[in-house]
Simulated scan of single mutants.
Amino acid sequence: MTADVVRLRPPMHRVNPRARWYWAARAAVLWIVLLVPQVIWWVADSGEAELPHVLVGVAWAVLAAVHLIVMPQWRYRVHRWEATDTAVYTQTGWLSQERRIAPISRVQTVDSERGPIEQLFKLANVTVTTASAAGPLKIDGLAAKDAEQLVADLTTRVGHTLGDAT
C-alpha cells in the first residue's frame, strides 16, 4: 500500500464575501473601545491645550479608517480553504500569513462555531483539530450552510480513514 502524497499548496476556495463585513464589524468594536479613553481625556481636559487632542483624534481616525477599509479586503484575498479526500488545506492572515495542511488521517475532531456576530452575518467557523503540536486548523468566515456541509463531509471522510489520528 502506497502512502498518499500530500503537498502544501494554495487552497482552492475563498471564504464567504460577507466575512469582509464581519471582520470590519469586529475591528470597529476595537476602535470604539479605543475611542472611549480619548473622549474621557478630552472631557477631563476641556478648555486646555487643544492641539494634542486634535493630533490624537486625527491619528485615531486615520488608523481606524485604514484598518477598517484595508484589513477586511486584504484578509478576504488571503483567506482560503479546501478539503480533499486526503487533506484539509487552510491559508489565513493578513499582515502575518500562514498556510497549513492536515492529512485526513491526522484529524481528530471537526467542530463548527457560530458566535453572536457570526450569526448576524450568517457565517460560521470550522475548527479541525489534529494530533499536531501546531494546534488546530481554523476556517473562519464560511457561510453557515457551507460550514455545516464541510463538517459533515470531513466527519464522513475521517470515519472512512484507516489510522489512529496520532
Rank of each mutant, 00 (worst) to 15 (best):
D4I: 03
V5K: 08
R7T: 15
R9Q: 14
R9E: 15
P11A: 06
P11C: 05
V15G: 02
V15P: 04
A19V: 06
A19Y: 15
R20M: 15
W21Y: 15
A25I: 13
R26K: 13
L34M: 14
L34W: 09
L34T: 09
L34N: 10
Q38D: 09
Q38Y: 07
I40M: 14
W42E: 08
D45R: 12
E48H: 11
E48L: 07
A49D: 15
A49T: 11
A49V: 08
P52A: 04
P52K: 08
P52I: 06
L55H: 03
G57F: 04
G57R: 05
G57I: 02
G57H: 03
V58H: 00
V58E: 00
A59V: 10
H67N: 13
P72I: 07
Q73Y: 07
V78H: 04
V78M: 06
H79A: 08
R80C: 02
R80S: 02
W81M: 02
A83M: 07
D85N: 06
T86Q: 04
T86W: 00
T86F: 00
A87I: 03
W94I: 08
S96E: 10
E98S: 14
E98R: 13
E98L: 12
R99F: 05
R99A: 14
S105R: 09
T109N: 15
V110F: 09
V110P: 08
P116T: 04
I117A: 08
Q119L: 02
T129H: 15
T129N: 15
T130F: 04
T130Y: 06
G135Y: 07
P136C: 11
L137N: 06
G141V: 06
G141R: 05
A144C: 00
K145R: 03
D146V: 01
V151D: 05
A152K: 14
L154A: 07
L154E: 05
T156N: 13
T156K: 14
V158A: 12
T161K: 05
D164Q: 13
A165S: 15
A165K: 14
